[in-house]
Design a protein around this nucleic acid. Structure first.
Lengths: 244, 244
DNA sequence: CGCTAGCTTGAGAGAGTTCAAGAATCGTGG
DNA sequence: CCACGATTCTTGAACTCTCTCAAGCTAGCG
């Protein structure tokens, strides 16, 4: 992890930081501006390189990270010889570490996908805010609820063995979109198969098929942050229509 | 739903209601006893018959239900012609409707499994408590976090297509235990298959095999609340050892 | 240039699905 | 109390998707 030479700009009234600002469940909604300003010096603007570990499973919870750009994967290990499983993807505006804060220790292995930039806030600051500003704590609860909702939808959409791999892959890719653009966060086949619980080989076959049909363009470069896709076509495949 | 002729007894200092009392994340932990007592008149002691709907998807959120006895299944519909999917099971001590409170409307179809008894609390009361007692709201957050954790573990343990059905069924049954007893909440094959995302036929074959091996005793009666099982043997199967 | 990690491609085998028919159980009303 | 239809569950056989194992390819990096 690297520190950047600026602090998060949200509480300067600057519109630059959409992660904390301008959204329904914005991080600091409901907290008086002066209260936030008083804390800003404790917040670090941080940067993670692709593949970097943000925290390990069972690490003591110390900070929250509000993602500004990039994506973060949360990994769990089923134990024994089973392969790791990706259970959630966090994107800009999401908060990394809320569950760790409540449980006292990290519940996952958190890894940066592509370059990740965000604001890191010490937990004592967050906990103090929660106790002093119930509306702020309510925001945190909504974040959690939103995670729960997404995880359940993930479970329903992606983990049904009776739905063909092609369909589930299309649904997954649609979830990995960058906002409403036609860009999709670039995950390795290993990651994609860890999300859908497929073998790497099957994932490869499906992705190759998609690329062949023009559903997505692979840049070829592994370190590209995104690849672009035909969203409408993917939605058709996701709904069960034949890809051809 | 039926109203019962008593109120929830927790805040009378009565030890009878373990749902609100004596647990780590007890519902009213952190709230002064007199504050709770002032609200008790607004809490109903309610009863649901087996199979009864507690709330429908998208229904306006109006109350929380703290389960005292029985179990509740939360169902989601993947849309189109796909079969409904059970995404979470709530047991005594769990709170039904937290996510609905935060989202404003029900996120699932909630159905009683067996007879369900619990305490029903109007949402305005809960919301007021959240705003006046940040420690109470913190309890609610922990409940949510706990649900999130369980859902993720559910995803990892039960929805991996590469794990054989027998193994997943064993894991599921262990999750459906009544506390630490050797009793397992009695779900229909339809429900079991909706949790594991198997066909009803496969679920039947696995359960029949388990019963034949003496891993569990089926009473035969459908309306029994539980069937009893050989927990140690199930754990062996869940870990991947041969059932024979 | 050669190494490693990531991806592709093929053929065979197996677990679960699908389709289909039949048995057991429930509860309801005569 | 028994007969009835409606659920719920059982069992069988053929099929199919995905896994497994195995080999080869490509890109990136020292």
């Amino acid at each position: 992890m690297h520190f950047m030479n600026t602090h998060c700009t949200a509480w300067h009234g600057d519109k630059e930081c959409r992660a904390c600002d301008g959204r329904d469940n914005a991080f600091f909604a409901g907290v008086a501006h002066q209260d936030v300003a008083a804390l800003h010096i404790q917040v670090d603007n941080v940067y993670y390189v692709p593949g970097e570990t943000i925290y390990q499973l069972d690490a003591p919870a110390e900070t929250l990270l509000v993602i500004r750009t990039g994506a973060v994967k949360l990994v769990r290990y089923p134990g024994k010889g089973a392969k790791p499983r990706i259970v959630r993807i966090l994107k800009p505006g999401d908060v990394v570490g809320l569950d760790a804060m409540l449980a006292g220790m990290a519940q996952h292995h958190a890894v940066a996908v592509g370059e990740v930039r965000g604001c890191r806030i010490p937990l004592p600051v967050v906990q103090q805010l929660c106790m002093q500003h119930p509306e702020f704590q309510w925001n945190m609860m909504r974040q959690l609820q939103s995670s729960l909702r997404e995880t359940e939808q993930w479970l329903v959409d992606l983990t049904c063995g009776s739905v063909p791999a092609r369909e589930r892959m299309a649904r997954l890719l649609l979830r990995l979109r960058d906002g409403d653009s036609d860009r999709i966060y670039h995950f390795s086949l290993k990651d994609l198969s860890a999300m859908l619980c497929l073998t790497l080989e099957t994932a490869s076959r499906v992705i190759t098929e998609f690329a062949g049909l023009g559903l997505m363009v692979r840049t070829g470069k592994h370190n590209e942050q995104f690849f672009s896709a035909d969203i409408a076509a993917l939605e058709r495949v996701a709904a069960g229509e034949p890809a051809a």
